[in-house]
């Protein structure tokens, strides 16, 4: 028997950490989606698909811009000392993932704006002809646009892995102290974005491609989740019991049903059948993937706060 009692009773800290509510998972989810979309858009630019009139790379930046802004709003809403938010940008703290993240976000916005200007709205260009300059600059040389595509992918990956690194840099929470959490969030972002683009893509080729790609991402995601769990289970006792929170503990139901079942396995099967033309493409499977990604963030953030060193020492 090991009976531990504490007189501490701090709000949001005891009996288990509850400092992060819906805002952070939503931000992580939206950040992941934006990361995936930038990777996809960048890939299409790299592949020279900018010549296709209805290429997704032209409207994904708009969507990314909106989603990223919503994510930033969620992040802002989470701050407890909101009036001091500007303090983020009076310094750069090299050891702080949060500081890296806030600066990356600042760099991503211009990136998205340039992406948008690859095909600026006609009405706007008429008024401000100067806005046509970037388009002219990039389109004048295929290598330029290819390089720009790579740069877009680079920043997309940056956000994606940052969302994972943010949590795993907080070593005090055993569930998060995994070196592949960033990969999980990146792949999950990719699969969510691919599912999303698959639904909205006007280009048939892209739609088919993304359905296939999404299946690949889902398989990889499943694999990364397995690695994540095995990594925790084979690490320290506290990390092992943190993994148990997902496998058999309080979060097992949401993890198995929503993340693994409805978020990965079932949409994978549906999409396999659809890709092989056994059934029709519907938005159902992609929607499931996207929701699965959202629940994944909720589960990881919530269970991570619940996991703790002290419970076993």
């Amino acid at each position: 028997m090991n009976e531990i009692t504490s007189t501490r009773h701090n709000h949001l800290i005891d009996p288990s950490l509850q400092i992060w509510n819906w805002e952070i998972p939503v931000y992580l989810f939206l950040g992941g989606m934006v990361a995936g979309m930038m990777l996809i858009a960048g890939y299409f630019l790299f592949k020279g698909r900018e010549n296709e009139e209805n290429c997704s790379c032209f409207y994904l930046p708009y969507i990314s811009f909106v989603l990223l802004s919503l994510g930033m709003l969620a992040l802002f809403l989470d701050l407890e000392h909101k009036l001091y938010v500007w303090r983020l940008y009076t310094t750069f703290e090299i050891s702080s993932a949060m500081s890296w993240g806030s600066w990356i976000l600042v760099l991503v916005y211009p990136m998205l704006i340039v992406n948008i200007l690859l095909k600026p709205p006609a009405a706007v260009v008429e008024k401000f002809p100067i806005l046509n300059k970037p388009k002219e600059y990039f389109f004048s040389n295929p290598m330029r646009i290819k390089s720009f595509g790579v740069l877009t992918m680079f920043f997309g990956a940056g956000i994606g892995l940052y969302t994972g690194v943010l949590l795993s840099s907080l070593g005090a929470r055993p569930l998060w102290s995994s070196s592949i959490l960033w990969m999980l969030f990146l792949v999950s972002g990719l699969s969510g974005a691919a599912a999303f683009v698959h639904v909205i893509a006007k280009n048939v080729y892209e739609r088919e491609l993304l359905a296939k790609a999404d299946n690949a991402f889902l398989i990889i995601e499943l694999f990364v989740i397995a690695l994540f769990i095995v990594g925790l289970k084979t690490a320290t006792e506290v990390q092992a019991s943190a993994a148990d929170l997902l496998l058999t503990g309080d979060y097992a139901a949401s993890f198995w049903v929503f993340v693994i079942g409805l978020g990965i396995v079932i949409p994978f099967i549906i999409q396999i059948l659809a890709v092989n033309h056994k059934i029709k493409h519907t938005p159902i499977a992609p929607l499931m993937v996207i929701l699965g990604g959202l629940v994944l963030r909720f589960v990881i953030v919530s269970a991570g706060q619940f996991s703790h060193w002290f419970r076993t020492y």
Binding site: I13, D14, E80, H81, R87, S96, R173, Q305, W309
Partner: peptide, 21 residues
């Protein structure tokens, strides 16, 4: 106090749960 934005990353990072908002 007047540099803190209340992001709570420090709280999450402390293995002793010694901090609070």
């Amino acid at each position: 106090h007047d540099e803190c934005i209340g992001c709570k990353a420090c709280i999450a990072s402390c293995p002793y749960d010694a901090r609070f908002v």
